[in-house]
């Protein structure tokens, strides 16, 4: 579904330029759920934005659904790939009702039977028709994220890019959203590219994952490998151990090691 080769994204020019993504390559098969894990600032969002066509300033080779992508996309592309953002409080237009938000993609792509589509997609994400005419400020964080997912689903894409869809939510709400995503994948066979800093979320949702740090992919492994601790990189081990909780012995050792390295 996705083939990425040597994707590089730079921001700024000259001396101030930052290389946010540095020669990243990976492949996601159709119907698969693929995870990208890494800490804040490592370039996860930047990759998704480049794939989604929100950033035209990248180099490398990207093929989605067999077609090679140019920085500028044609309209049909957007029906194929949809994105869900990290912050449900910022990703819905505050002046649009749920209905207005869902109506926009229908109008842009000239789809028929708008009411039917909206009702169906709202039911699919577990919001009744009662939510249709609410404004975002009348919704909780979890409900907003459901609307954002509905907005992505309404175009019936084949690939869904998920940028930390639950990191702004409470664990109980996170569980609901993750379950919803699982159900959607079961019923539609969508391909997921899920970005998260939380190894346990990725291991719950995905089949394979790539561990990123500072704009590069360190290693790629299956979730089974991860569970069996068959990772090669120290960095992956650190992430793995951190996701298990606090361990005094390990952490104290880490502080020492870090300071000796002169950080």
């Amino acid at each position: 579904m996705i083939e990425v080769e040597d994707l590089t994204v730079r921001f700024g020019k000259g001396k101030a330029a930052v290389t946010a993504v540095d020669g990243v390559s990976f492949t996601v098969r159709t119907g698969e759920a693929f995870g990208l894990v890494g800490e804040s600032g490592c370039g996860k969002t930047t990759i998704l934005r480049a794939l989604a066509g929100l950033n035209e300033d990248w180099s490398g080779l990207v093929r989605i659904d067999g077609k090679q992508l140019m920085p500028k996309r044609e309209r049909a592309f957007y029906k194929l790939v949809q994105i869900v953002f990290q912050d449900p409080y910022g990703s819905l237009h505050p002046r649009f009702t749920v209905n207005g938000t869902l109506m926009e993609p229908i109008k842009i792509h000239d789809l028929d039977r708008p009411d039917e589509r909206i009702d169906r997609v709202l039911r699919q994400v577990g919001l009744g028709p009662a939510f249709r005419f609410r404004y975002p400020h009348q919704l909780s964080g979890g409900q907003r994220q459901r609307v954002a997912i509905a907005r992505a689903l309404i175009l019936e894409p084949k690939l869904m890019l998920l940028d930390e869809p639950t990191s702004a939510l409470d664990v109980s709400v996170q569980a609901e959203i993750l379950n919803l995503l699982t159900d959607i994948r079961d019923s539609t066979g969508l391909t997921f590219l899920l970005v998260s800093h939380d190894l346990s979320v990725v291991s719950h949702m995905c089949d394979r994952l790539a561990v990123m740090n500072q704009g590069r992919i360190y290693e790629e492994l299956t979730v089974e490998d991860l569970v069996q601790r068959r990772y090669r990189e120290t960095y992956t081990r650190q992430l793995f151990e951190a996701s298990l909780g606090y361990d005094k012995r390990l952490s104290t050792a880490q502080v020492k090691a870090l300071d000796e390295a002169g950080a």
Partner: peptide, 18 residues
């Protein structure tokens, strides 16, 4: 709350919700 946490190596397909 505890049941709704995803865990590495946990093979539940769906998480328990509160």
């Amino acid at each position: 709350l505890l049941a709704s946490l995803p865990r590495i190596g946990d093979r539940r397909k769906r998480l328990a919700t509160l």
